[in-house]
Measured scan of single mutants.
Amino acid sequence: EDAPSSDDLEQFAKQFKQRRIKLGFTQADVGLALGTLYGNVFSQTTICRFEALQLSFKNMCKLKPLLNKWLEETDSSS
């Protein structure tokens, strides 16, 4: 699987934040939901840093598919 470019990540982080707010979730909600869904709880700080593009590139790449999946799950259930 190709690693996303930093442009991709930036684009995704923006879209993710907009969708999250529109769906009415806090950063902490998302962190907990990831724990429920995938067994990895993320702190509010981590989600905040992801949205602000302040995580390392490697961590951004790791989180992106999880957050993407969460969006898909959340979209389909709302």
Rank of each mutant, 00 (worst) to 15 (best):
Q15C: 06
W70I: 02
D29W: 03
L32C: 14
Q11R: 09
I47G: 01
Q18R: 08
D75C: 13
A13F: 00
S43T: 11
N40F: 08
G31M: 04
S56N: 10
K62E: 10
I21Q: 08
R19F: 04
L9F: 10
K14F: 05
E51M: 04
D7T: 10
F25S: 04
S77D: 13
M60E: 00
T45W: 04
L32A: 12
Q44V: 08
T46S: 08
A3F: 15
E72N: 09
P4L: 11
L55S: 06
G24K: 05
L66M: 14
S5A: 13
A28R: 13
M60L: 07
Q54I: 06
F42H: 07
P4D: 09
F25Q: 04
D8R: 08
K64C: 05
A3I: 15
Q27L: 06
K69Q: 11
V30L: 08
T45D: 15
F57P: 12
E72W: 04
A52P: 00
L37G: 07
R19L: 03
T74Q: 13
S56G: 08
L37W: 07
L63G: 02
S43V: 01
K58N: 15
L55M: 09
I21A: 05
F25R: 06
T74D: 07
T36L: 09
K17T: 12
E51I: 01
L9T: 07
L9V: 10
S56Q: 03
I47F: 00
L55A: 03
R19M: 12
K58L: 06
K22V: 05
G39I: 04
G31I: 05
F57S: 09
F12V: 03
S6A: 15
S56P: 14
K58M: 11
V41K: 14
Q27P: 11
F12Q: 01
L67D: 09
Y38F: 09
K64V: 09
D8L: 04
L9Y: 04
Q44I: 04
L53G: 13
S5F: 09
K14N: 08
A3C: 15
K14L: 09
T45S: 12
V41N: 14
E51R: 04
L23A: 07
L67F: 02
L53K: 09
C48W: 05
S6C: 15
F57L: 12
E73S: 09
R19Y: 00
K14E: 11
E1V: 14
G39P: 09
S43I: 05
K64M: 11
L67V: 03
G39T: 08
K58R: 09
E10L: 10
F16V: 04
K69I: 14
D7I: 04
L63K: 00
W70M: 01
L34V: 04
C48P: 08
N59K: 13
V41Y: 10
E73T: 11
A28E: 12
L32R: 14
Q18C: 05
P65V: 10
A28V: 04
L63A: 02
G24A: 02
G24Y: 00
G31R: 04
S77I: 10
S77H: 13
L55F: 06
Y38G: 10
A52C: 05
A52R: 12
N59R: 12
D8N: 07
L71F: 01
W70L: 03
P65G: 09
I21K: 06
A52I: 03
M60Q: 00
K62F: 07
P65M: 06
E72K: 11
L63F: 09
D29Q: 15
Q54F: 01
T46Q: 06
S77G: 14
K14P: 03
Q44C: 04
F42Y: 13
A52S: 13
E51D: 05
E73K: 08
A3P: 13
S6E: 15
S6V: 15
Y38E: 06
D29C: 03
L9H: 02
M60T: 05
F50H: 00
E1W: 14
K69T: 07
F16R: 03
P65L: 07
S56C: 04
S76D: 13
K22M: 09
F42K: 02
A33R: 10
S76Q: 14
F50S: 01
C48N: 08
C48F: 13
G31Q: 06
K62D: 07
Q18A: 13
S78R: 11
K58F: 04
T26N: 04
K62C: 08
R20Q: 02
V30G: 00
S78A: 11
E10Q: 09
K14I: 08
E51T: 02
T74E: 09
G24V: 00
K22L: 09
F25L: 09
F50L: 02
Q11Y: 07
L66V: 08
A52T: 10
V41C: 09
F42N: 03
A3H: 15
M60S: 04
